[in-house]
Amino acid sequence: MGLLHRLRGDESLMELYAGGDVGAFNELYSRHKDRLFGFIYHSSSDRTAAEDLAQETWSAVIRQADSYRPTARFTTYLYTIARRKLIDQHRRSATRPVADADSDETPAATGSEPDTHLEVAQLRAAIKALPADQREAFVLREEGFSLTDIAAISDAGVETVKSRLRYARQTLRQQFSGGHRQHA
């Protein structure tokens, strides 16, 4: 059954799960859990919040499985839910300060070189400091999504996504270069 599930597309797996096939969901979850968590982690304030948002996102997928219709790619469906959860989370924590780069939640603890470790931490901090739209576009792009996919998830035009990406990279280069120079 597992092999058959692996041969199926995301949308087919989702329909199977909607029909009661739990194994189909397990396959679907294993395909997308890490990348989704990475997207949420890079877009949220801290790791705990990321875990909560990831759980809320998958919970929504489970609850809405009955009404799921494969009118779009499953990834678009999944990340659209995650994005809305992130927006809600940002609204709830609008008054809370964004986690700083020195937070011990930085996942780059495995970095072998201290300089790289610090640079990654600084980059993470710079990403979190971006405007939500730019951060979202940048992270999704780095997680491998096409401009069209990002546009679909963000409910924006492709040109708008390009613009957001351009501004995000420009800001990150400026901040990271400054931080990098300071560190150097």
């Binding site: 969901f25 979850y29 890490d34 759980q55 919970s59 489970i62 470790h117």
Partner: peptide
Amino acid sequence: LYHSTPSPRSPAALDETILKMAADHAP
């Protein structure tokens, strides 16, 4: 630089919770 370190992975505890939820609430 973004990809110079492994991406954060979904915690095992979270995986367990979600998979259990999926099994319990399977249509």
